[in-house]
Each structure stands twice: as C-alpha cells, then as structure tokens.
Simulated scan of single mutants.
Amino acid sequence: MALVKWAIDPTHSEVQFKVKHLMITTVTGYFEKFNAEAETEDDQFTAPQNIVFTADVNSISTNNEQRDTHLKSADFFEAEKFNEIKFVGNKYEATGGSDFKLHGDLTIKGTTKPVTVQVEFGGIVVDPYGQTKAGFTVSGKISRKEFGLTWNAVTEAGSVVVSDEIKLQAEIQLVKQA
C-alpha cells in the first residue's frame, strides 16, 4: 500500500518561539518561511512517519529589525553558515485522546539533539475546495545553550538579558497530496 503524503499549508500555519527578556517580559518571534511534511498509512493520519520540519533562519522576525539582525549573527544562529533549523520526527506516541508526543532530532546551528514536543491533533476536514487537511498544535521547550546559542549579557543588578529556555509553539495545517 502506498503511503499518503502530506505537506504544509503555509497560509494556515505559523511557527513561534518565546523567550524571557531581562527575566521580566516575554519576547515573541516567528519564522516567516518554513516547511513540514509527513507520510501516513491512510487518510486519517494514523501512524505518521517521515515527519520533517524545516525553518529558514533568515526569515526570523521579532518585529524589531535590529534584534533580528543580531539573532542572525554569529552571537546566535550564524545564519550565513547555518541557514536552516531542522526537526526530524522518529516516534509519534499517543498519550490520550487527541494528545500525542512527537520525539525526534532537532538540529540548530550544526548541533543535533533529541527533543520531544507535545502535539494536539485538531482533526481532519475537507475544505470547501475539496482538499483534505489535518491540523495540529505543537508546543515544547528547549535549552538554547544546548544548541550553541550561548550569547548573553548581564544587567547592572546581575540579571541575565535572555533566558536559556525557549518555548516553541506552532499551529500546523497539512494538506493531503494528490
């Protein structure tokens, strides 16, 4: 039996990250260019496999051009050398109801580490144009320092400027491919 292929619907998907700034507020950023694909054994998104997500580091946006330029620099992502973030899923595990854990390998700035994210499966629907779509809310946390994103500064009072913990949040809509 041939596997069913799914691809991102970029106009109905978004990928965000949140990080504490000065440990008192949260800055939200997102990637404007990203891709995701998966394969399943049937139309119901049973047993997904070959799950791959990529984000274009040069598309990072925090609604502040100066900060975005700094994030693309060698202090953080080093976008000229490492222009892609990649996640390859290797285990999709049911945890109850519409909740799942997706285990995989995340590569940022040339460093690959195992990561587990929470997935809420929103369901499958056929849109008004006859396309079959599957929806997901993905969330997780990573340590930026584990991926070589170690830049920081300290305030006069001794507080760090940028937290180590990065919260990940994505709304993903996949389209069944013909």
Rank of each mutant, 00 (worst) to 15 (best):
T26G: 10
V27N: 08
T28L: 00
G29I: 03
G29F: 07
G29W: 09
G29R: 03
G29N: 04
Y30R: 15
Y30K: 14
Y30S: 15
F31V: 10
F31Q: 15
F31C: 13
E32Y: 07
K33Q: 07
K33S: 10
K33F: 00
F34D: 05
F34V: 08
F34A: 03
N35D: 09
A36F: 02
E37H: 15
E37A: 12
A38K: 08
A38D: 06
A38P: 03
A38W: 08
E39D: 11
E39H: 13
E39G: 06
T40K: 00
T40A: 05
T40E: 02
T40R: 01
E41Q: 11
D42Q: 12
D43L: 12
D43C: 13
D43Q: 12
D43F: 12
Q44F: 15
Q44C: 14
Q44M: 10
Q44W: 14
F45Y: 09
F45R: 04
F45W: 04
T46F: 07
P48E: 08
P48C: 13
P48F: 01
Q49N: 13
Q49I: 05
Q49S: 14
N50F: 04
I51N: 01
I51K: 02
I51R: 06
I51P: 00
V52T: 05
V52H: 07
V52R: 07
A55Y: 01
A55E: 04
A55T: 12
A55C: 11
D56N: 15
D56P: 14
D56T: 13
D56F: 04
V57W: 02
V57S: 01
V57R: 08
V57Y: 06
V57F: 03
N58S: 14
S59E: 12
S59L: 11
S59Q: 11
I60G: 05
I60H: 02
I60C: 01
I60D: 00
I60K: 01
S61M: 03
S61R: 04
T62K: 11
T62F: 00
T62S: 03
T62V: 11
T62R: 12
N63R: 14
N64A: 08
N64I: 10
E65I: 14
E65D: 12
E65V: 09
E65C: 11
E65W: 15
Q66M: 14
R67M: 11
R67G: 08
D68V: 09
T69S: 15
H70F: 01
H70E: 05
H70T: 01
H70K: 00
H70C: 00
L71G: 05
L71V: 07
K72G: 01
K72C: 02
S73M: 11
S73F: 06
S73H: 07
A74H: 11
A74M: 08
D75C: 07
F76V: 08
F77N: 03
F77S: 02
F77H: 03
F77P: 00
E78V: 08
E78P: 02
A79Q: 03
A79W: 05
E80Q: 13
E80F: 09
K81G: 08
K81Y: 04
F82Q: 04
F82W: 04
